[in-house]
């Protein structure tokens, strides 16, 4: 339970960053910027995990952060490969141009 005021600031900051990330994904059209927004979401999660973890004196949360960073790196590799593949075929990284599939 939240007794101290202290942890609240971390929660506000992390949730704000998370919302900025979500807005970025929903609003921006450039694939790389979308990608950065998703990374922002992941990093806000990392921040919050570390804050919770150190507040509770439980190491599990910080270990989770290592896993998130590792997996995010793998995801970046695949994601950039997909964007490069698309760029080679269409010469564009605007997701508005990826509109061949629709009903």
């Amino acid at each position: 339970m939240l007794k101290e005021v202290f942890i609240d600031h971390y929660i506000y900051l992390a949730l704000t960053l998370f919302c900025i990330g979500i807005l970025g994904v929903l609003i921006r059209r450039n694939a790389i910027v979308l990608f950065m927004s998703i990374e922002l979401m992941l990093n806000s999660v990392n921040l919050l995990l570390v804050a919770f973890s150190s507040r509770m004196g439980d190491a599990a949360g910080q270990i989770f952060v290592f896993f998130i960073m590792t997996v995010a790196a793998a995801e970046v590799a695949v994601g950039l490969a997909i964007i490069v593949m698309l760029y080679r075929n269409t010469r564009s990284i605007d997701i508005g141009d990826a509109n061949k599939l629709k009903w």
Partner: peptide, 23 residues
């Protein structure tokens, strides 16, 4: 290509939300 990009963006977006839920 397009399917892959859409799947990737939506999938990692969902992963971000999943992580926030877990946190």
């Amino acid at each position: 290509n397009e399917a892959s990009l859409k799947y990737f963006l939506m999938g990692s977006f969902a992963s971000g939300i999943l992580l926030m839920g877990i946190t």
